[in-house]
Nucleic acid binder design. Structure first.
Lengths: 155, 155
DNA sequence: TACGAATTAGTCGCACACGAATTAAATGAT
DNA sequence: ATCATTTAATTCGTGTGCGACTAATTCGTA
């Protein structure tokens, strides 16, 4: 499938959507989704976070998080409060319900994941490799393709 | 960050969006996007394809492809034609412009990708590992989480 | 103190992405 | 030959995801 980078990005693209579908299947009958599950995990790890911090940890822009967090708050798994020390900030915390929901979700997912029969060592190496690529991609400032180059018949 | 599966999915999630941002940066000044680039690559590899075939190769549902392909056709990189042998099918082909656009896009991306300084052997292994996981996830039929289990305080 | 700059969330518009329902065409069964 | 079934593409509704912009708050500095 063409050059290595295209192959790599395409593989990442498909893996991510396979994960999304897998989680979607597990969560289908609940209000939970894949991105919401990610957010719950980050919150469980790091406790109370402002939206900007959560944005950075999850690698999602805050304008994506704002409506997502609103839906999660409506659902009851998180709480949103203005930081009294800095009224610009909105601090997000897991509710007790959010904590128990995450526990149940993790159990359900771990169950389905175990049945895949993946080699844990390979998964760990895979995570390391993906992390390398992700870190480099995140720091990169590639040159932009111009419209002229895109349409040029020169080669 | 919690259990291995959560770590794995989160890493895949971030890698995919880092790729998307990277490609977006390269393509910013053109009409091209990351999913469109993927489609162009699949078409370059496999030639003329019906939408359902393209859907399968790209791992995207056809109701996602329909509007995407319409935009690409408007842009001029692909052509959409009804198959005269089976009027239900819409056959997608790369236009000459699409072919040259892909060439230019590949060159630009390969350029930026090379500057990341990733180890090609590691990238290849990473692709293999991700492929393993993707294949298993795709075939999996995990048990669904119930609303009762999600909300239950039992454990 | 006062006022411009920076920071933080949120809104808006657009592009994916999918499940469910719909429409049109081909196939199969009687 | 007719009609139910299947297949292919599209439409619809909802949820993510981002760039650009806006509103509110805080900070820096005169």
């Amino acid at each position: 499938m063409g050059p290595l980078d295209a192959h790599y990005c395409f593989t990442a693209y498909k893996l991510n959507r396979s994960f999304a579908r897998f989680y979607q299947t597990v969560f289908a009958d609940t209000g939970l989704t894949y991105p919401k599950y990610v957010i719950l995990n980050v919150l469980a790890e790091d406790g109370a976070l402002a939206i900007s911090q959560l944005s950075e940890r999850a690698g999602v822009e805050n304008n994506t998080l704002s409506p997502l967090l609103k839906r999660m708050a409506d659902f009851g798994v998180i709480a949103r409060e203005r930081d009294p020390e800095d009224e610009r900030r909105v601090v997000i915390t897991l509710t007790p319900m959010g904590r128990s929901a995450l526990k149940a979700a993790r159990a359900a997912v771990a169950n389905g994941f175990a049945e895949l029969g993946l080699d844990p060592e390979e998964v760990k190496r895979s995570i390391v490799y993906m992390g390398h690529a992700q870190a480099k991609l995140e720091k990169a400032s590639p040159r932009k393709l111009t419209m002229a180059a895109l349409l040029g018949q020169s080669d």
